[in-house]
Every structure is written in structure tokens, then in C-alpha cells.
Design a protein around this nucleic acid. Structure first.
Lengths: 240, 240
DNA sequence: ACGGATTTGTAGCGGATTGTATCAGGCAAT
DNA sequence: ATTGCCTGATACAATCCGCTACAAATCCGT
């Protein structure tokens, strides 16, 4: 987990903000607070956060609306704070993409446990995710230079990658040996959802293979999983 | 998206098991139930599951203990069902590695929402060849390269495997000397349940045998167990 | 802003794979 | 021996995927 996880607490009550941030900081986390949606946006824009704790009841933009926005962007996990017993809110929140909720008034220790639980989930799901930025990795006979967005072949020289080829390759390298559906790949590379006749990913895989597979007719780096998607079947190691 | 997500519901009450499984199935999931910890272990061993819904209060092995075991293995996400208001249980469950909990009595719609939420986080793809991912194993006169999805015959050269042949072989190698029913094999390879006239597995076994049996008329690697299924009857050892 | 070049998405053909139907052979029980 | 079921094998149809070709979109320098 590198440095301390950074939590953003969004609530309009000063008391709650302060007590929560203090409690989190006492328990090995970094905490920042925001008093409303606008404040939250400013803080999010200005730094990296691992999780947002979001109050449903807020003046200005509603918590559910904020939740929908954040979940759509998909960049950060969310825990919602709801009024006690408001089933409707809770279900709505989860369906909108919140990762968890907690009823107010809540036990701080339980909030901590839930934060840890969500963090554990999201880091488990993405083993190397995002960490490829600025690094150089080697796999098979190739070295990927993420800064220059090119591949370096041991034998031949540099192989330039187009934008989408690069994104696709990075996404797969970060999830080596995982089977990724076309939907997931399209979501991760382009941020959109696939229509029923969408062959976009097939096409990009085909183009990428031409550049990285020694024998395109029998691909072994990017393997096709029928009815499943694609899988990068090789080890990926860091390069000095 | 591959096949439907498969949920295992563990609870000692018949009513709850049945109503929950029925509700999940009506909402686009596959559900199986187990009545206690031992039953659960059997089901887990015999098929593939994407998530376990686990009651805390159970006769026999306690839910928290089961939760610790499963979380340590780390193979499958867990949602715990706790008695209402039992803060201690909830916190303990989360700290033991559960991915979420729900207080009983619960709203089925909320359970569904939580299941979807957990799956969204954790189902970011599964390893292709299970525990064999990236390994190379030897059995009889053959070596299986799981990365390249090919067999290497000591005498002849490489034997390419189709996707389903490969999945079937991997599943059987991982469970060498165990008798596997057609249902289990279909579940483990394709993630679906067999209809009454389903001869899919027979067919695939037949195809696989043609590629691996020295004498197809007298198969000795994959043995047929009449009224039982099939069994890979040979030792499997790791290859450098 | 314009025009050309590169990149990216869409459509469609053809090969490969896989599930279903069907028939034939074999084992077991009567 | 006969009957009934279970399994092996073949044939075929449906589906999936790779590839090419083309159209739309984007980029970039002037």
C-alpha cells in the first residue's frame, strides 16, 4: 500500500468531520475533509485519494447525485453515510455505485473496519493497477517504455505504439494472467460500454498482436479465451 | 462477461436458503446452497463460485471461523449474514476478511445490490488456468505448457489444444485421481449447469482423448467411471 | 481553418471451434 | 439371450473469432 491511505471525508457538520478525521489519523491513515460537494471537487482535483466517505444529506448538491458522478468516473471507492434505517437511500447508493454504506450514528471503529475492507478489496482487484505509470517493464522479448510509449524489441529496434494500442497493452500488463472480457477491456481502455455488435477490441487486439507476437498465426503472449475475452499469458517483471 | 455469476448460499434454515437462491436466480445469477460448513466445503471443492453468502449463526463450525478460513485462502469473496445489531459480529467479520455483511432480517433487494457491488470490485477477471497458471506440468508422456496452451509429446512434437480441451484438461489435472461427474466438469469448465440430454462433456472427453491417449480404444489416462463421470488416473508432477 | 496523414471504429467473409442430434457398441441386470 | 441404459463416435449447424477492407474521426503542420 505504499504510503498511508488517504481518505476524503465529506460532511457538512464540522463536528463529524473533525472527529472522523482525527480518529482515522490516529489509526494509521491520512484524512482530509470537505464541507460540501464543491469543496470535495476542489480537494479531489488537488490531490490523490484512496477513498471518499460521503454523507448523503448535504446542502447543495445531493449526496446521491455526487455518488453517481464519482462512481461514473470510477476513479475512487466510495462509502456513503446514510440516516438510520433509510433502506431506500442505502439501496439507491449501492446501485449507484457506492462500495459500501454506514448508517448514522455510526461506531467509528466500524467505519474504520469498512474503510479497510473496501481498500483491501480495491487493491486486491487491481494488483499492479496504475503503478505502471512512468515505469519500464519487460515481458518475453520486449521492453515497454511507458514514458515514450514505445516497445523495444531485443532483436529489432523500437516499435512505436498508437494511443489505443498502448492503453490496451498497459491494461493487460497490469492484469497479467487474468481473463479480461471485451466489456472490461473496452471499459478500461476507452471508458465506454460495448454494444452487441462491437468488435472494437477484437480489432485492437489484432493490431497489437501484429506488433508483439513473434508468430501472429499462433499468438502466445495475448491468448484468446473463447467466450471469455483475452488474457496476457506471460510473466511481467520490472526493468531497471 | 462469460457465464452467470455463481453464488453459494450457506445457511442452516431451509426457508432462507430456498428463498434466497430463488431470488438470485430470478435476477440473473446462478445460486447453489449449502446447509452447514461441511456441506459448503464439499460444494466449493466440486465447482466454481464467485461469491459466498455466509450465515454467522450455524450449528457445527461457527460462521466466523469459516469466514477466517475462507478469507485466508483468499479465493472467494464473502458476504456475512449477522443478527441484527450485533456490532461485535459485524466488526469481527469485516476484520476477519469478509467483504461485506448484512443484518438479518434483510431485504433481498439489498442483498442483491451488495452482491453486485462486491462482484464489481472483485471480479476484475480471474486467472486463466487456476492454480496452474503460468506453470508447466508433466504427466505420462506429456508436458502441458499452460502459457502457450499446448502439449508437448516426448516423441512427437507440439500438440495444440483448443480452448475447451485445454480447460477440461487443466480442471482434471488439478484434481487428478478424483472422479468428476459431468455436472462438475461442465460447471468447472464452462460455468453452467447441464441439461438432461447434455452430452457436451462426453464429446469433449472424446476429442481430448484423441490428442493425449496413446491408444484411443483403450484409454488409460482419462478413465471412464460408469454412472460416475471421468477420472484422470495418473500422477501429475511439476516441471522445471 | 484547411488538407493530408494517421489512427480508430464498423462491416463482412471465411475458417475454426463447439454444442446438439443421432447412431452404434458395450456393460449390467433380468 | 434380451432388454435397457450408458458411453463413444460421427455429422452437422450455430457461434465465435481473425482478418481485410473501408469509412469516420482525429491529429498536425502549415
Amino acid at each position: 500500500m505504499g504510503p498511508l491511505p488517504h481518505i476524503l471525508v465529506v460532511d457538512d457538520h464540522v463536528q463529524i468531520r473533525e472527529s472522523v478525521t482525527r480518529y482515522l489519523e490516529k489509526n494509521g491513515m491520512r484524512a482530509t475533509s470537505a464541507k460540501d460537494a464543491a469543496d470535495m471537487d476542489a480537494k479531489l482535483a488537488g490531490g490523490h485519494f484512496d477513498l471518499v466517505v460521503l454523507d448523503v444529506m448535504m446542502p447543495g448538491e445531493d449526496g446521491l447525485s455526487v455518488c453517481r458522478r464519482l462512481a461514473a468516473a470510477g476513479a475512487v471507492p466510495i462509502i456513503m453515510l446514510t440516516a438510520l434505517g433509510e433502506d431506500a437511500d442505502r439501496i439507491a447508493g449501492l446501485e449507484l455505485g457506492a462500495d459500501d454504506y454506514l448508517a448514522k450514528p455510526f461506531n467509528p471503529r466500524e467505519l474504520l473496519a469498512r474503510i479497510r475492507s473496501v481498500l483491501r478489496r480495491s487493491s486486491r482487484g487491481e494488483p499492479l493497477a496504475g503503478k505502471l505509470a512512468g515505469r519500464t517493464v519487460r515481458f518475453e522479448h520486449l521492453v515497454l517504455d511507458t514514458d515514450r510509449q514505445i516497445l523495444i524489441d531485443d532483436e529489432q529496434g523500437e516499435i512505436p505504439l498508437t494511443d489505443s494500442e498502448f492503453r490496451l497493452l498497459v491494461v493487460m500488463l497490469e492484469r497479467a494472467r487474468m481473463v479480461l472480457s471485451r466489456d472490461q477491456l473496452l471499459d478500461l481502455t476507452a471508458g465506454r460500454t460495448a454494444g452487441p455488435l462491437d468488435r472494437t477490441i477484437d480489432n485492437q487486439i489484432s493490431r497489437l498482436r501484429r506488433k508483439i507476437e513473434p508468430d501472429v498465426l499462433r499468438p502466445r503472449i495475448i491468448r484468446t479465451v473463447r467466450n471469455g475475452g483475452y488474457c496476457l499469458a506471460t510473466d511481467v517483471e520490472e526493468q531497471a
